[in-house]
Design a binder for these strands. Structure first.
Length: 677
RNA sequence: GGGCCCGUAGCUCAGCGGUCAGAGCAGGGGACUCAUAAUCCCUUGGUCGUAGGUUCGAGUCCUACCGGGCCUACCA
């Protein structure tokens, strides 16, 4: 195939990217990077989905123009994606002029095919906000079970389905006004006329996973397809329909067209013809979507493409949802984690790897379990894979790898032969299988190094050649794995290129060992997951208001063990307390103290040039790296104390004993130098 | 109401009609010390949700039931 065009679903401009979205974008990005690594001509396009009532209302609430809102959100989305190394070839917007032009083109085709009809629809209307109300913007009392505060389409208490006009005492969630029933003319697409085509395409084209094909057959295609309502009366934020003034295309009509218009933008920038990508036998289209938007992409969208003469998707890859610690993401539990929040605390490589290790080609949900997340990354990635480089490169720093590949008992050849299986797994989106095969190669490599014991060869001149050979093998086995993992961990592939002086560019580099290359100084490629940071991320994501809603009965029952172990000190006066000057300080530097078992040497900043050197007995409980930048509380007027390793000019406040030490941190907003009162 | 998916060791999963059901992590024991408390070796652990059926033979196919998740078109 000459060209491969890949898309992810267009994120809605009404909210920020969170870890649930990222399942899809990371999955797609891995697949695209795999294709590119194989040397295939592949582009990855996406865009912001910007239209609809929700955007209009939000813009009203924030008192900005819609264009401003969506521009701001697009910028935020792109920054989040870049932070996770998701590499789009083009990122557009459904509000771009290219999209309008393509909407018109496809609309005309639907008109010409006689598929557009007009019908009058009765809908609830908010007279205050002056807008028609989608079901989700209406609340009221369930007509069946009398449950209050139910949405306009169904009751989550008794499960009844009804029309919003059946609700008792309905109110608009936008203005609080009582909605009235109004009717308006809507435009419909008679998708039933394409029923035969959809039967065939969904069941026989191979574009859909079997369970999806089944689902469609059992649910939609077993009866006449209902007409699809594709217009909304003004006011609506979207494109006005040229031949139906006052009506706008429903957001789900123009959203998928964004796939094409984003491609168009890329083509215009690269001197390519759009038709070579969207109307060509030599091009295949792959959509990656979540299961919630299945029918839009497997019924309406193929119907539109068919009528307008575009290529049909070669494959619609449908994935499940993300749960966190086994439950739906929850704002109150701090498991509704935004991409930007994650990036403040953790390396994106962790999540890319973790998702890859859990993703298969099915539509099952995947669970992000933080305990497993930390364990998997630390054990598999750092302990097994990266450790291969870490434990061999240092022996041959600044030297060259052997000129002839030494006898490695067939290890390199064996892993080279795995390439086909790994490639198949990537191609089928069964990344979990790819990772399993790759990890097995890592295990074999570690076993080899264990047996070859390079550390026993280094001090012996006669062992120098053998040492070089062993490290040549170890580093090549590592590099081979880095090639296989390059789609998942692009940064690791880059670092491997830097270490060995030859960049990784192609899958086939897994097939031949690298010889004679000069080994650079080894630098850590990936740090272990710091569980404190995971906790901090969850804490930062928790919405405090909802936490307070928790019943007092849910408070943990604390033992008085700590109090008994260390009884309260004698009472003091306020004046005595006030003598202690506690200050907020920022950790500017942190390092382990040579020769000391428990001490870390910290440089604290109190703002401006005011600095203190403090020795704290927290080594083993905190990594120096993780402390840098944090705010702590320091006893600032304590007399300096000479210690074996230098003078300590204060103390930092912490609780605990040898079994665990916990630093105290000021809440957000505190500034260095502020006094504790 | 209808539909789809899932239910295999404490956890995450592999196994998709045929050797005594496997891996990683966690747990237990040992070795090593090059490495980011990394690595290596050994080891504990499952009547494969339940009950029937098809078959010479079933986690593996069929049926029912139980449990969990999700979807159900003028919701983005």
């Amino acid at each position: 195939m000459e060209r491969i065009l890949v898309t992810s679903a267009l994120p809605y401009a009404n909210g920020h990217i969170h870890l649930g979205h990222l399942v899809e974008y990371i999955q797609t990005d891995i697949w695209v990077r795999y294709q590119k690594l194989r040397g295939r001509r592949c582009i990855y396009v996406c865009a912001d989905d910007t239209h609809g009532t929700a955007i209009m209302i939000r813009a009203q609430q924030e008192a900005v123009r819609e264009e401003e809102l969506i521009a701001r959100m697009k910028q935020a989305h792109q920054r989040d994606f870049a932070g996770f190394q998701i590499q789009f070839d083009n990122y557009g917007s459904t509000n771009d002029p290219e999209n309008r032009a393509l909407c018109i083109e496809i609309w005309s085709a639907l008109r010409r095919a006689g598929l557009v009809s007009q019908k009058e629809i009765s809908q609830l209307y908010d007279p205050v906000a002056k807008t028609f109300l989608a079901d989700r913007f209406v609340k009221g009392t369930c007509p069946r079970c009398q449950a209050p505060n139910q949405y306009g389409d169904s009751c989550d208490r008794c499960g009844a389905h009804y029309s919003p006009t059946d609700l008792i005492d309905p109110i608009s969630t936008i203005s609080g006004a009582r909605p009235e029933v109004r009717s308006a003319q809507h435009l419909f697409i008679t998708i039933e006329k394409l029923h035969g085509f959809l039967d065939d395409w969904t069941q026989n084209s191979g574009a859909l996973q079997p369970e999806i094909a089944n689902y469609l057959k059992g649910h939609f295609l077993n009866e006449p397809l209902r007409d699809w309502d594709v217009s909304r009366p003004a006011p609506y934020f979207g494109f006005e329909i040229p031949d139906s003034p006052g009506n706008y295309w429903y957001v789900w009509f123009d959203a998928p067209i964004g796939y094409i218009s984003s491609t168009k933008q890329w083509c215009d920038r690269h001197g390519q013809r759009l038709d070579d990508w969207w109307r060509s036998e030599q091009s295949e289209i792959h959509h990656f979507i979540g299961k919630d938007i299945t029918y839009f992409h497997t019924l309406f969208w193929p119907a539109m493409l068919k009528v307008a003469g575009f290529n049909l998707p070669k494959k619609v890859h449908i994935h499940g949802f993300l749960t966190v610690n086994g439950e739906k993401m929850s704002k109150s539990k701090g498991t509704f984690i935004l991409a930007s929040t994650y990036l403040q605390y953790l390396d994106p490589a962790y999540l890319r790897y973790y998702y890859a290790a859990k993703l298969s080609s099915g539509v099952e949900d995947i669970d992000l379990n933080f305990e497993e997340f930390a364990g998997k990354v630390n054990a598999d990635l750092v302990g097994n894979i990266v450790n291969l480089a870490s434990r061999t490169a240092r022996f041959v720093q600044g030297q060259q790898l052997s000129a002839v590949y030494p006898d490695d008992k067939g290890l390199f050849a064996r892993a080279a032969a795995d390439a086909q299986q790994i490639a198949d797994a990537y191609q089928q989106c069964d990344f979990a299988r790819a990772i399993r095969i790759i990890l097995a190669a890592g295990d074999r490599a570690n076993q080899f190094i264990e047996q070859a014991a390079p550390w026993n060869l280094r001090n012996d001149a006669s062992g120098a050649e053998r040492l070089r050979d062993v490290c040549t093998i170890g580093l090549n086995l590592f590099r081979q794995i880095a090639v296989y993992l390059a789609p998942v961990l692009p940064r690791l592939a880059e670092q491997t290129g830097e270490l060995l002086g030859v960049p990784i560019r192609h899958w086939d580099e897994s097939q031949q060992p690298l010889l004679g290359a000069t080994v650079s100084e080894f630098k850590h490629m990936l740090r272990r997951v710091d569980r404190h940071k995971v906790e901090a991320m969850v804490a930062a994501s928790a919405e405090p208001e909802e936490q307070q809603e928790g019943s007092p009965n849910n408070l943990p029952i604390d033992s008085d063990e700590a109090l008994r172990a260390e009884p309260l000190a004698p009472q003091i006066s306020f004046e005595e307390f006030a003598k202690v000057d506690l200050r907020v300080a920022r950790v500017l530097e942190a390092e382990e103290v040579e020769g000391a078992k428990k001490l870390l040497k910290l440089t604290l900043g109190l703002g401006g040039d005011h600095r203190r050197t403090v020795f704290a007995g927290i080594r083993g409980h905190y990594q120096p790296q993780e402390l840098i930048g944090r705010l702590v509380i320091c006893a600032a007027n304590l007399a300096p104390r000479k210690m074996k390793f230098g003078v300590s000019e204060g103390m930092i406040v912490a609780v605990g004993d040898d079994s665990g030490v916990y630093l105290l941190y000021p809440d957000q907003g505190a500034k260095p130098g502020q006094r504790v009162h």
